[in-house]
């Protein structure tokens, strides 16, 4: 069953000189429980795409529906993680995770139990009473993921969540994210510019062109979960990654 559906979505930003075509027209769907990676070059409108689906930005043309509803304002049933963790410096880790429950005026003691479970699952429970600046970048991003999942959203949107982390931490985060994802059963939209990350985490990869971003290719990733990092060295994995890379080479984004 399709929960997210985009039809001929376009985004045009009004500029001072001329209008800038930022995105589309682009159409695709995300099935319930599915993980879709969107991979594309910088400035192809990937982040705009995420914002439009989340209802944080409006499409210039076309329609976005989530769970059968036309999106026109911020959708509630989603947790978002940005590239920067955007934790609040003045709140401890646990209070940062509790923020969405607080803003929605939910029962905080139940939310606290849930928050501690999430932090434990993400391996940062020991830091619950610490402050964000006492944590490393990878740990901060784990807290941001816990915050996004607190209110049990059925969807998780990630906008280049691990781009600011070093390669090793990034691998580690991919494994942790996969684990939480399986456990929570969330429909996931992952925006990334790492081909490996896109393939490793997704059921389906959407390859986007340069600006204005359109679909170049859609590739189903058939590997069973949980996946191990060593999968990335498998020939089948390499074949999919290679197919994506060729798109970028052909359009001159990558020269190899």
């Amino acid at each position: 069953m399709t929960t997210v559906l985009l039809q001929d979505v376009r985004k045009v930003y009004g500029g001072t000189q001329a209008d800038v075509d930022a995105l589309g027209p682009i159409s695709f769907g995300i099935a319930k429980g599915e993980t879709v990676s969107v991979v594309g070059p910088s400035g192809c409108g990937k982040s705009t795409l995420l914002r439009v689906i989340a209802g944080l930005d409006s499409a210039t043309a076309g329609t976005v529906t989530v769970a059968g509803q036309l999106v026109s304002s911020p959708i509630g049933d989603v947790g978002i993680v940005f590239q920067r963790d955007l934790l609040l410096d003045w709140r401890s880790v646990i209070d940062n995770v509790l923020l969405p429950a607080e803003l929605r005026r939910m029962d905080l003691s139940a939310a606290r139990t849930r928050a501690m479970q999430l932090l434990a699952e993400l391996g940062v429970a020991d830091f619950a009473l610490r402050y964000p600046w006492e944590l490393s970048g990878g740990m901060r991003q784990r807290v941001a993921i816990a915050r996004a999942l607190l209110c049990k959203p059925s969807m998780l949107f990630l906008d280049e969540p691990f781009s600011a982390l070093d390669a090793l931490t990034r691998d580690q985060m991919n494994v942790i994210l996969q684990q939480v994802q399986i456990h929570e059963g969330v429909t996931t939209l992952l925006i990334t510019h790492s081909i490996q990350e896109a393939v490793f985490l997704a059921d389906r990869v959407i390859v986007m062109s340069g600006r204005p971003g359109r679909t170049l290719d859609e590739i189903v990733v058939p590997f069973a979960r949980p996946r191990r990092l060593s999968l990335r060295e498998a020939p089948e994995f390499a074949a999919i990654a290679g197919r994506i890379r060729i798109h970028f080479e052909r359009t001159g984004i990558l020269v190899g």
């Binding site: 209802g55 911020p74 989603v78 978002i80 940005f82 609040l88 003045w90």
Partner: peptide, 29 residues
């Protein structure tokens, strides 16, 4: 206040007053 942060809390359903009281004011201190 960070525009991305304001966007994020908006997606969490924050009202104008909550945005001021829980985000903008502590951030301005």
């Amino acid at each position: 206040a960070d525009p991305d942060l304001l966007l994020l809390v908006r997606s969490m359903g924050a009202e104008r007053f909550q945005m001021l009281w829980k985000i903008r004011i502590p951030n301005a201190l």
